[in-house]
Amino acid sequence: MKAAPEAQRRLLDLQAVDTALNQLAHRRRSLPELAEIDTVAREISALEDERARAQVAVDDLDRDIARFEKDIEQVRTRKQRDQARLDAGGALREIEGLQHELATLNRRQSELEDAELELMEQRETAEQVLHEVQKRLTEATERRQAAEARRDEAYADITKEQEFKTQSRAPLAADLPPDLLKLYDKIREDTGLGAALFRSGRCGGCRIELYGADLGRVKSAPADEVVRCEECRRIMVRTAESGL
């Protein structure tokens, strides 16, 4: 392929813009905030599971405490009824039976109240655990929100730079011969780099140094010849810096 030396040199300007765009795209994909958000998201997921378990533990204890409260209230009601019957008097056998039942009910009430107190202590501990998990979850959520805000700010900056670079690319590409631009774009799409400066006997794309016949081929090629690297197939642009 033939192309004016000046057109070939402009490929380096175009490649500089494309390299900057590639770097911006890589920066967008590899923002540290993305890894942070991913890490915190996993932490939040685990904390949400932990919170659910802690809430279930509190709810179970509340249900058990409510059941004990109901049982205690039933015992109290029965005691009041029996005490009223005892106060009303009656046959000795009936009085003895009521006294025995009241003693049994007192023991039952004491047992229930002791069990309820133990459950209430367990609930206090479980509630503390739940509050601690909720606190950690809130803190993690705030960290994620802060990281997302930093990510969005970085995205905005990158987008602004990408738009500027894209706008500057258009006139550079339009100023090149269509066949040269087509070749450059194809190589760039395949390898990420379409053209590179040939300098000091070395391809600027793959960094391979040329010797002997390969170097002679580059030196002897006409100025308007589009020379490509035998190793990486990229366009090697010759300028005054090439040292030929």
Rank of each mutant, 00 (worst) to 15 (best):
S200P: 01
S168G: 02
A223E: 15
L172G: 06
L172Q: 10
A174T: 11
G201Y: 02
A173D: 02
T191Y: 04
R217E: 10
R202Y: 03
A221E: 06
G205R: 01
C206E: 06
F164K: 14
R199T: 03
P177Y: 07
D175L: 10
P178S: 04
P222E: 13
K186R: 15
G194A: 04
L215Q: 08
V226G: 02
R228G: 06
E163F: 01
G192T: 07
G212P: 03
V227T: 14
K182N: 14
R228I: 12
G216K: 14
F164R: 10
A221L: 08
D185L: 14
G201V: 01
G192R: 06
A170E: 15
F198M: 04
D179M: 07
D175W: 04
L172M: 13
L181W: 11
D185Q: 15
E209P: 05
A213S: 12
A174M: 05
A195M: 11
P222F: 05
K182G: 12
L183W: 04
C206V: 08
E225D: 13
K165D: 04
V218W: 01
S168C: 00
I187E: 05
L180M: 09
T191M: 03
D185M: 09
A170I: 15
P177E: 08
A221D: 00
D190M: 10
D185V: 08
I208S: 07
R207K: 12
G194Q: 02
P178K: 07
G216V: 05
A173I: 03
L197M: 13
C203L: 00
A213T: 11
S168T: 02
E225A: 15
R217H: 13
G194F: 00
P178I: 00
C206F: 04
L210T: 01
D175T: 06
G204C: 01
R202E: 12
A196N: 09
S168Q: 09
S200C: 07
K186S: 13
R228N: 13
G201A: 00
G205W: 00
D185W: 04
G212W: 09
K182H: 13
F198H: 02
D190N: 07
K219G: 08
T166V: 07
P222A: 07
A196P: 06
R202D: 02
R217T: 11
L183T: 13
A196E: 02
L193S: 03
